[in-house]
Each structure stands twice: as C-alpha cells, then as structure tokens.
Simulated assay, not measured.
Amino acid sequence: MKIILTHEVNGLGAPGDIVEVKNGYGRNYLLPQGFAILWTKGAEKQVDVIKRARGAREIRDLGHANEVKGQLEGLSVKLALRAGNGGRLYGSVTPAEIVDAVKSAGGPELDRRRLQLPNAVKTLGDYKVSVRLHPEVTATFTLTVAAAK
C-alpha cells in the first residue's frame, strides 16, 4: 500500500514522505490515526504543502539543532499546577503544557510530539525531559513541577 505521511512516524518517515507499507498497517493504524493519507496523483500535489509546513517548524540542520540544544539545556522550566495532599497532581502534565512552559521560560518553540518523558508526570518534583531535535541531537532539560498557590 502506498501512502503519504502527514505526521512523523518513528522508523517510517517524516511528514510529506511517500512510503510503501503493508496493507494492514496502513489500513488499521496509519490511516485511522490520521498519520497518513492514501497516495493518489492528486494527493501527491499536497506533498509540497505538507513539506513547506514542515520546513517552517523543523530544525534546519545539525548546527541549528545544536544551537537549540544549548538554549534548552541552560533553561530552567517551572510549571505550577494544582496539587492535592501528598503532592499528587489533579491529572497529569501533558506535552502541550511542557511546550508552553518552555516557551514562557524564554526557550524555543518545540513540537510536542518530539518530547520524550520516561513516564507520566503525576506528582510534584523535578523531572528530566528529553527532546529529539534532530536524528543525531537530543536535548535534555529539567522540568520543575510545583504546587500552584
């Protein structure tokens, strides 16, 4: 089955890539999740639009990725959320909240899908968050989750 990726899929490709996958994988996972669209001649024209949008968001090259890594690793990211007794949060911290906290701390704009959390953040404390900036560059910063007053 020939498809066009609309989102980044680990081990498969980036948005705008035209790839060949097994029928079941495409039909049962990639298409329903919205990670891909079926390849047609008309859809292939949309690839340019997808690639232009990706270029605006994406880290341009290895040097730019290292520059962003330097910004992130020198950053102190704090997130104040409501917590109950014992430091347990009401809900958990989402990648979108982390991206917003990085932006408000003066950091670069990140793609929430590139964040890598070791496990769900459900209590107060310090957490190590990794961001895959480039296939060869991963930045790590500390997220401090504190109780909102």
Rank of each mutant, 00 (worst) to 15 (best):
T142M: 11
V77M: 01
R82A: 06
Y90T: 11
K22L: 02
A147W: 00
L117R: 05
A148S: 12
P95K: 02
L62M: 08
L72K: 03
Q33S: 08
W39H: 14
R57W: 05
K149W: 08
H7T: 06
A96K: 00
L75K: 06
G63D: 11
T140F: 00
G107H: 06
L81S: 05
K149I: 10
E44P: 00
E136Q: 14
I4Y: 04
A65F: 00
H7C: 08
A120Q: 13
H64Q: 12
D48P: 00
V129C: 12
I98K: 02
A53V: 11
A101L: 07
S92V: 08
G106M: 09
L79A: 01
F141S: 05
G24W: 10
I37H: 04
T94R: 00
Y25A: 12
V47D: 04
A147E: 07
S92R: 06
K149D: 11
R54L: 15
R88H: 11
P108H: 00
A105M: 01
R27H: 04
E109V: 14
E8D: 07
K128R: 13
S130L: 05
Y29W: 14
L75T: 08
G91A: 15
E58R: 13
L115C: 08
D48E: 14
D17A: 08
F141M: 06
T123N: 12
D61W: 09
G87Y: 08
G87T: 03
